[in-house]
Design a protein around this nucleic acid. Structure first.
Length: 203
DNA sequence: GGTAAGATCAGC
DNA sequence: CTGATCTTACCT
């Protein structure tokens, strides 16, 4: 499977990314939780929660580029979050990698996290995932499908996922654009944004 | 040139 | 529930 499988709308791309193998820096992990963002600003996909919502900016430029590339940004001044760009070239869309199960290089992942972290939590949460796999802001824009890329992705045959609302977004908070592999303990807990309107009052 | 909000996380 | 910590984007 190749990048063309990701040149689709964010929801379809998100489902296709469940179960994918992510090769970080000396750590390999299986993607178990993702969130869809963006999509065409006109049509059925406008997404006020996406960084691309108000048009391209220096930060969100990669989201408008070709599918299969990495979009990283700094969250809350502290963490790095990693996305897989989707949609056709020129259309902004991305899938946030929220959690993964480390299947190789666990000792390296452990060393990157704070002491005493249990293996299921090595890459649980988007900030922790980047820390465990050694993904940084400098990796923004790289081709995840490139054979020589320091961070690589291999899609696996589709696995059925469960769906629910995205974590921590204040816009479109009821939209069920978060997907995960059921029964995986690495999936992070749902937290609604305190800024989001009451359930059912927007979207 | 100022500033408020944020796709988070860990520790009380 | 709160603090840490800083970049971005939007405002004047």
């Amino acid at each position: 499977m190749s990048a063309e499988h990701l040149a689709v709308d964010p929801v379809t791309a998100a489902r296709r990314l469940l179960g994918a193998t992510l090769y970080g820096r000396d750590v390999v992990a299986t993607v178990v939780e993702v969130e869809a963002y963006g999509g065409p600003p006109s049509g059925p996909w406008p997404d006020a929660a996406a960084h691309s919502f108000r048009g391209p900016t220096p930060r969100s430029a990669v989201m408008f580029g070709p599918a299969g590339h990495l979009y990283t940004y700094r969250s809350h001044g502290i963490h790095v979050c990693a996305n897989v760009v989707c949609c056709a070239d020129g259309v902004a869309g991305a899938v946030l990698l929220r959690a993964a199960r480390v299947i190789d290089g666990g000792d390296v992942a452990e060393g990157r996290r704070r002491a005493g972290i249990t293996p299921v939590a090595y890459a649980r949460g988007p900030g922790n995932l980047c820390e465990a796999l050694g993904i940084t802001l400098a990796d923004n824009g790289i081709d995840l499908m490139g054979r020589r890329s320091p961070i690589r992705l291999e899609l696996n045959p589709r696995q059925e996922g469960s769906a629910g609302p995205r974590v921590g977004v204040s816009q479109a908070a009821d939209r069920a654009w978060r997907f995960w592999l059921p029964g995986t303990p690495e999936v992070s807990n749902y937290r609604r944004s305190p800024r989001a309107p009451a359930p059912g009052e927007s979207d």
